[in-house]
Computed example of a mutant assay.
Amino acid sequence: MTPPTARTRPKRHVDHTRGGRRSFTWTDYRDLLIAAHQQLGAPIVLVCVHKDRRLREFVDTHDWIPCYFLPAYAPDLNPVEGMRSLLRRSSQTNTAFTDPDHLISTLRHGLRQIQYRSNLINGCLAETGLTLTTSRRQRQ
């Protein structure tokens, strides 16, 4: 498994009440699915956890989107759940975060501790019964 990269590092989101929302809404997901379908010209298989009613209605009305919903917590299906569990039991144990920066720095510290312990990462993957089928991506 590759170490955490810039895309997996925790980031602070702008307060949603101030119009600076940086996370996806259901319409963003809908638009992404439509654009991918148009570009690929093929069905899109969607595997998701969140069951937004509006997104589900959209998916149900389009036969080119077979959709599989996973349970909200499924460590036997998702190796990331094992990583979250490791973080909760180590760097986040009995911690009252004083502000978002404290939370982010604690998460980064916990991820750094896990990053170089391949046995922990491999254990999270092994718990699912999944295996890596591709080599690490080479930086270009």
Rank of each mutant, 00 (worst) to 15 (best):
R22H: 05
E127L: 06
S135H: 12
T2I: 15
C124E: 03
G41N: 01
R18L: 14
L86T: 09
S118P: 04
T131Q: 11
L70F: 05
L77S: 02
P79I: 07
C67K: 00
H109S: 14
P71A: 09
R53I: 07
G110K: 10
L32Q: 12
Q38L: 14
D99M: 09
T128I: 05
D60W: 00
S90N: 14
Q39W: 07
L86D: 11
L70N: 00
P71F: 00
T5W: 06
Y73I: 03
N122R: 12
L111T: 07
H37D: 06
Q39S: 13
A36G: 04
G129E: 02
P10Q: 02
Y116R: 10
R22A: 14
W64I: 00
N78R: 03
T93M: 12
N78H: 04
T133I: 11
P71N: 03
E127R: 09
R137L: 12
D52T: 06
T93R: 15
G20P: 01
F97H: 13
T93K: 15
F69E: 01
F24G: 01
D63Q: 11
T131P: 00
R136Y: 09
H102D: 15
S23M: 07
L32N: 07
F24S: 09
T133C: 10
K11L: 08
P79G: 08
S23W: 15
S118A: 07
A6L: 14
H102T: 13
F24K: 05
S118R: 08
H62N: 11
P66S: 04
S135N: 12
A72P: 06
L46C: 05
T128A: 04
